[in-house]
Design a protein around this nucleic acid. Structure first.
Lengths: 346, 346
DNA sequence: CTGTTAGCGCCTTCAA
DNA sequence: TTGAAGGCGCTAACAG
């Protein structure tokens, strides 16, 4: 009794319902409902009268009840691996704005690079969204397919056949990066890898290996595991040990960490070591400014939402695949290798 | 008829409902419901059996139906002015994780520095959330109070009496910055202001003016309006014209823009001009690395959610006010003014 | 054009 | 400890 009262007190001032409006207007609930969802079915004056009454009453249709009855929520979920990684904010922002343009609300989920967490988030969102977007999902293909069976699903930077996806194709940019390093005279480089379950990471590694082979460049791979400033800094010791003359990092954060680590050891970039990042999220903030493979993650976000919305309105086939190009932005962290080093490398 | 079929086809494979689980377990719906919400009311084995069956069936309680029936959605909304501003991602991330720990889903809204958009977002969220968090709201006090009357509301970096809020207090850090500049010998500085409707901006400006007066430092104010790299760069011409020897920028993005603008004009920082940022979101990425007022925006996000959740569970009085300190991080963009400039300034 | 009647899936009294 | 029944607010047939 006591507890119940507390709970009721906790409840907000009760909103008016359709029944209130109907009573005040002397019509039935259905008519009120129609006045909001299919006004063209009603007499003009009826609609206006109901609208006026609703307004004075401060009536607002209940989103939840409507959703339960129609199965349409007007929500969608965006799940990313790490909100704070600068790759994501522009993507999130663009997705957000795009959804907003179609009156959709967006749930944001942060999986923290953890597949289990990602699963949990999907489960939690799935019953209240129209569809979901997974960015750089760390989930296995079968899990993804499972989820896709429950709700329309779009992937960003993850490739699973049969599921609509938008892919930022690093291949073009990475090829340019290798060509650039080759032209400068590098013969032995390192790829500093990111998370092994990341599609982007695999794609970059493979593209790099292929291009390097074509240019006769030797490639070592070191792993930074987590894409962060710290792990970039931590990998520097190994990097030096490798005796390579240049490195391509999985992303700009790692690259920035490497720059710091190199600076701490008094190794000047680009004079003694060349470095290329990926993503171009730091702008020209680092010094020297970072040569990097640029991508427009905001476009990926926008495209993801568009794809999902199209799919929802039935305007789209199942296996769409949107590919966004990348390109190398040459700034100041790449140069010809020091001659002494070049000998070592060969 | 045709249309209906299309719609049904569009509907996903129907999720299992409580009734399915009940049937499979040979119990009633109520029992299944209780197994999920008040297991202690049931026999241990009953609960386990139901849980097992639910699991094999892949049953997930329907969030929407539950919300309709209880009035509790398990959602909350976080509205920020610009997702892509590096100040926000850590805050968002922390808020996100904190909410997650209490099984809440979070809606993210991007107001784009626009009060109308902010209002719109609130309206759209309000009927499906337990409460909202507004970060750096650009809304008038009366609008905020209006919204707070509909749902529990927490403010971050916005002060409205009577509404729970967490404030990142730049005063302490700004004071340190002024003391630092004064000690270096600066006598005439500029505050490069951010959005005029921003609480943080007003607070920083006022704190700066006060501290400057105490140190006998002259202060001009220039406005960058939008907190971005570009607007920082755009303000540089005026900045030079002012003949001040140092500037404190509303945030690090503006400061970074100023650095670029100065570099373009061949004015070396800190030799010819000293610069202090706010927020400390760039790390040591700029060159020279930026002296700035540090704040931990992630703590603000976490605190905001905690405050809201506490309020929801009735554990909290109305007018809570959490204040987070800041402090100056001296790096490389501040130095004594050139002697010629100092004369001009006095 | 408008009213009537069933649900949507779940929670929550009230009985047993 | 469990079941039956009603309702949360709205939409969507089906009549009229």
């Amino acid at each position: 009794m006591e507890a119940r009262r507390v709970q009721q007190a906790g409840r907000r001032k009760k909103q008016h319902t359709m029944a209130d409006v109907a009573r005040a207007a002397g019509v039935s609930k259905s008519t009120v409902s129609r006045a909001f969802t299919q006004p063209e079915m009603l007499g003009t004056e009826t609609v206006e009268r109901i609208a006026a009454i609703a307004k004075t009453l401060g009536y607002v249709p209940n989103h939840t009840a409507r959703a339960l009855s129609t199965g349409r929520h007007g929500n969608l979920a965006l799940i990313v691996t790490d909100v704070a990684n600068p790759f994501f904010p522009p993507l999130i922002r663009a997705a957000q704005m795009e959804a907003d343009g179609s009156d959709f609300c967006v749930f944001l989920g942060n999986s923290d690079e953890n597949p289990r967490q990602e699963d949990k988030l999907v489960d939690r969102f799935v019953s209240q969204v129209e569809g979901l977007i997974l960015v750089g999902s760390r989930l296995g293909a079968e899990r993804i397919q499972h989820h896709a069976g429950r709700r329309p699903l779009v992937l960003i930077n993850r490739e699973v056949t049969g599921i609509p996806r938008v892919l930022i194709d690093s291949t073009t940019g990475v090829r340019q990066a290798i060509a650039h390093l080759a032209a400068l005279g590098h013969r032995h480089i390192v790829y500093v890898s990111g998370p092994s379950s990341s599609w982007a990471n695999r794609q970059r590694r493979n593209a790099l290996r292929l291009a390097a082979r074509q240019h006769g460049i030797e490639v070592d791979v070191l792993s930074a595991r987590v894409p962060s400033y710290e792990s970039g800094r931590a990998v520097v010791a190994e990097l030096i040990e490798s005796r390579a003359t240049a490195a391509v990092a999985f992303d700009d954060l790692i690259a920035q960490g490497i720059m710091t680590g190199m600076a701490e050891r008094g190794i000047p970039i680009p004079e003694a070591f060349s470095l290329v990042g990926c993503d171009d999220v730091l702008g020209a903030a680092t010094y020297p400014s970072l040569t990097t493979v640029s991508n427009r993650s905001d476009e990926a976000g926008r495209a993801g939402v568009t794809l999902l919305l199209d799919r929802l309105s039935g305007r789209m086939a199942g296996d769409t695949r949107v590919v966004l190009d990348t390109h190398l932005v040459v700034r100041q962290t790449t140069a010809a290798p020091a001659s002494g080093q070049r000998r070592q490398g060969g």
